[in-house]
Design a protein around this nucleic acid. Structure first.
Lengths: 246, 246
DNA sequence: TCAAAAGTGTTCTTATTACACCCATGG
DNA sequence: CCATGGGTGTAATAAGAACACTTTTGA
């Protein structure tokens, strides 16, 4: 047994990729580091796992302390353990991702939250540690998950329009979808409840509002579904012909 | 910085779920533990990660030391970190799964390998530590992966029959498939090369042998594919009618 | 000649794709 | 009355599901 003692010199952390959706754009919540290492850089919210704490608990704690919310979608994605990923010693990190409705969210007064800010996923880069890789892995997972489960709804406010839902899918899948086919498919799933209300105060024909049917949602979450739609090829605009090539 | 010191008292291991396929049955390689804790119980092969070793490296080492093979399918699945999962202290484990051709495999002379044995996945239970959970998570991952990538071929010998391939899919998906539809689908992928050879010495019409097309295989591995076939419902034999109900 | 598994096509049904115009509102 | 995004249906194609009999071999 003594032979194993040399191994008990490591630490592990959790890092949480918190996704939100706003203004047609997929966002991630980042924190500006106020201390070394990587002081001043943006990083994923995370912390050491306490000795008496399970991994999932630690991930929930990080989320709760920062945003004040709990009981939201939270799932382990991958563990990152390169030898030199942390300058303080051997630290592996278990990456989680969560999906929250930005409308539910209020930054907590904790000091850590003072430096938090939503960033557009498409534009993020050059984060602290190996957080670029972690974000990428979580985004890929989300991309996969959205085709298999109705996770998109975790990100929308309680009432939403079909166009908002479509924009969410387009942001996650990084593609454009055909409006009619999208609507036909999503409505045929019988997952939405038509609230028979419309938007107000918009400078165009107001859209119907929907909410999702919690029971159907739970069924789909448990059994999975298949959301596959081909990219809308109408937007493949050809570059203007340039005449002869050199 | 001193405040963090208290965290550097943990260890981590890798555990490897090594799948193989033989006699129409999906197998997993287990080791009978020769020491405490859980002495005498079957467990997944695994070991502590060395201080200067990446996680993926550690998983490869465990596989190599046990089976003598490397450069096979090996993928991280999930990390298990319940507080009390290991009696020696806080030890989290990163689970990997690998797929090997049993035909390529020879147990290494290392002492650890003396106690290794293939077990039918369907019948395994009551393993050491939380290894039942780990095996289950890896099996679920395999089940998903087989519908998305042609991983099945990692498990078959270089030459195989279509029926063997079908049995492999059935074992992984825990379902039965229609022979004609299976063949139509798999052949239409243009992934197999017909070797124009047949089995010998079988007491029935000998089957054609195939190998897979490495180039196509790589393409599908990179881009993914969709293998979806409904369970063959012909086997849903109705229980004999029992006359009137109470 | 029997048992055992191999091999093979067609029809039906369902899901997906492509695509263009009118509608309701606020400014 | 104009700009903006909302809302709608159909035909063509492709993919999947259901299903049963003949062939080849060894014992």
């Amino acid at each position: 047994m003594v032979e194993f003692k040399g191994f008990f010199k490591s630490a592990f952390t959790v890092d949480n990729v918190i996704f939100g959706f706003d203004e047609g754009d997929l966002k991630v919540l980042l924190i500006k580091r106020g201390e070394e290492p990587y002081e001043g850089k943006w990083a994923l919210p995370g912390y050491f796992v306490y000795p008496d704490e399970d991994l999932d608990e630690a991930a929930e704690r990080v989320l709760q302390e920062l945003t004040g919310i709990s009981n939201v979608f939270l799932e382990q994605v991958k563990t990152f353990g390169a030898v030199d990923r942390h300058p303080f010693g051997r630290v592996i990190t278990v990456a989680y991702f969560s999906l929250i409705k930005i409308s539910d969210f209020t930054l907590q007064p904790a000091s850590i939250a003072l430096k938090a800010k939503w960033h557009s996923v498409a534009k993020v880069g050059n984060l602290a540690f190996d957080h670029d890789d972690i974000l990428d892995a979580c985004f890929q997972r989300l991309k996969w998950l959205v085709r298999t489960r109705p996770v998109g709804f975790e990100l929308l406010p309680p009432k939403f329009t079909l166009t908002e839902l479509q924009h969410l899918y387009e942001a996650i899948l990084e593609t454009e979808l055909d409006k009619r086919n999208f609507r036909k498919k999503i409505l045929s799933m019988d997952l939405l409840i038509d609230l028979e209300e419309t938007q107000e105060g918009v400078a165009h024909r107001p859209a119907r509002l929907y909410q999702f049917d919690q029971e159907k949602y739970d069924t789909f979450t448990a059994e999975g579904f298949s959301f596959e739609l081909k990219e809308n090829r109408k937007k493949e605009k050809l570059a203007p012909a340039t005449g002869e090539s050199p």
